[in-house]
Nucleic acid binder design. Structure first.
Length: 298
DNA sequence: GCGACAG
DNA sequence: ATCTTGTCGC
């Protein structure tokens, strides 16, 4: 047989479960892209399948940025055990360069700077990034085909194994329940959460304007979405991570499960990762890291 | 046909 | 996402 298992007898490794066949191909047709997203959604699991506890990954004070990014303090390789190291949370974000579009919408040219920041026990343990040429423009609903490759490249550059991925954009809050957080989470078979700054689709249970910090309301599937589980219409949450006392109002975040996390746990985990700013710390750091690479300071 | 639309 | 000055408020 030509298909002997090369990993027979090998110890369990999460990457063994990776699904390379789900890698987004920017040259695919729109129909093929949508078909792949339906396959991804069918494999995705929007329920808790992890050992993550909000209090175990909580960050009480924000990382100091402004004066340069905090330095990574990775401890040497420790298989398991020295004390008890907490879960590794990885935040990912992108910045862009070049592109020929006039007003900022692009034709697909230019390059993506994707940055990944790994955090454990309240400290940054590793930074990684990848610079990738872009081939297609941004199309609502097909974001993963533009930025999925760059994100996977950044994750490949990371030496540690993530226990949770926090991605910019949607997870289950997506027309085919396969936003970029779901796509990446399924490929790596790692728990993932999507954090978006605006709503792609779906309806909030309550109006979202002017809510106090800590407030949240479910986002339910609307008719533009194909819901796999008809009995579970909650696809995510609007979550007010920060609010000013009096001044102008801040919009909430839209949190949705990517893979192996339930909607409510996803918000609880993101809430624990927020430390005073609108964006969760892993995302803030990844954002700053991508900018640093883009502007040459790295 | 019209409107909506993550980054 | 990116392009950019000023402006309001603690």
């Amino acid at each position: 047989m030509a298909d002997a298992d090369p990993n027979a007898g090998a110890p369990f490794d999460p990457s063994d479960l990776a699904h390379p066949e789900f890698t987004p191909d920017p040259s695919a047709s729109r129909e093929e892209m949508e078909a792949l997203q339906r396959e991804i959604a069918a494999v995705a699991r929007f329920e808790d399948d992890h050992g993550l506890l909000p209090e175990r990954i909580a960050l009480d004070s924000p990382f100091e940025i402004g004066s340069g990014l905090p330095s990574a303090t990775q401890r040497t390789l420790v298989p398991e055990g020295s004390g008890d190291a907490g879960p590794i949370v990885v935040g990912i974000d992108q910045a862009f360069r070049g592109g020929g579009g006039a007003s900022g919408t692009d034709d697909g040219s230019g390059e993506s700077i994707s940055a990944a920041v790994a955090i454990r026990d309240g400290r940054v343990i590793e930074y990684a990034h990848a610079v990738t040429p872009l081939s297609i423009p941004y199309i609502p609903g097909l974001l993963a085909f533009r930025e999925g490759g760059p994100i996977l490249a950044a994750l490949d550059a990371l030496s540690v194994e993530p226990d949770l991925l926090v991605l910019d954009g949607s997870g289950r809050i997506h027309y085919r329940e396969a936003g970029i957080a779901t796509h990446i989470g399924v490929i790596h078979d790692v728990p993932s959460i999507g954090v978006a700054k605006s709503l792609l689709c779906g309806d909030p249970d309550e109006p979202i304007d002017g809510r106090p910090a800590g407030w949240r309301t479910p986002i339910r599937a609307d008719r533009s979405m194909s819901t796999v589980a008809e009995d579970e219409p909650v696809v995510g949450y609007a979550y007010q991570s920060r609010q000013y006392p009096n001044a102008r109002t801040i919009n909430p975040l839209y949190v949705s499960p990517g893979h192996r996390v339930s909607p409510s746990t996803a918000v609880d985990l993101i809430e624990a990762l927020c430390a005073g700013y609108k964006l969760p710390e892993p995302t803030r750091l990844a954002d700053a890291s991508a900018d640093a690479v883009t502007h040459g300071s790295r």
